[in-house]
């Protein structure tokens, strides 16, 4: 475990906690896409199937449980908690996210390292994570309104992805056999989506305008 990886994980955890805090204390999920949250729940559920079969460390198992628990809690809050559900932007959050799920599943069946059940689902979770933020970005563009907490949530998520890339560069130079093309390319695509968003976020902030 290097410092980039740890910082990335912590940033990731804070991003989820910020979102849960917003939903739990303000009882509002305005500006948050439930589609993106459902995609993350699927990502974690399919990636962490190995939680029962391979033990890495207490840290790893603990963090996996945190991400599984938090992503499913957020979806539950947004779909079934009455007060929170009332604040959900249903008319604007119309991204057809099941197409993403289907495309990523097909891609995972075609491009993977090993054709086993766990490996294909693990690869599927990488593909899906890369594009899971799309419904959230589309929702932000539609409502053209971004509150501080939602902005911080996306900012922390972007930071987490950036730190993971530094972690891979570090591991590539310090560990033998650390070559993982699928992980790297999907990670890069995901980070570029955030970078693109922040570019426009920064421009609109600089011009003191709403997001365009």
């Amino acid at each position: 475990m290097n410092i980039f990886r740890l910082a990335g994980d912590m940033t990731h955890m804070f991003s989820v906690l910020v979102l849960l805090l917003k939903i739990h204390t303000i009882k509002s999920c305005a500006g948050v896409s439930v589609k993106t949250q459902e995609l993350y729940a699927i990502v974690f559920a399919t990636r962490y199937l190995d939680i029962f079969t391979s033990f890495v460390s207490i840290y790893n198992t603990f963090m996996k449980l945190v991400f599984l628990g938090s992503s499913f809690s957020i979806v539950w809050y947004m779909r079934y908690h009455k007060a929170v559900h009332r604040t959900y932007d249903r008319e604007q959050d119309t991204f057809r996210h099941w197409f993403l799920v289907l495309s990523c599943l097909l891609l995972a069946l075609l491009i993977h390292e090993k054709f086993t059940f766990l490996e294909v689902l693990w690869t599927f979770s990488l593909y899906l994570e890369a594009v899971a933020i799309l419904p959230q970005l589309v929702l932000l563009q539609r409502t053209r309104n971004i509150d501080n907490l939602t902005g911080q949530y996306i900012f922390l998520l972007g930071g987490y992805r950036g730190l993971y890339i530094l972690n891979w560069i570090y591991r590539y130079f310090t560990e033998p056999h650390f070559v993982h093309w699928i992980t790297w390319i999907t990670g890069l695509v995901q980070t570029l989506l955030y970078a693109d968003f922040f570019y426009y976020y920064f421009l609109s902030w600089k011009n003191n305008k709403k997001l365009n």
Partner: peptide, 10 residues
């Protein structure tokens, strides 16, 4: 997981 295995990540 062995050295260089990306599956020890989250």
């Amino acid at each position: 997981p062995k050295d260089g295995d990306v599956k020890d990540e989250l």
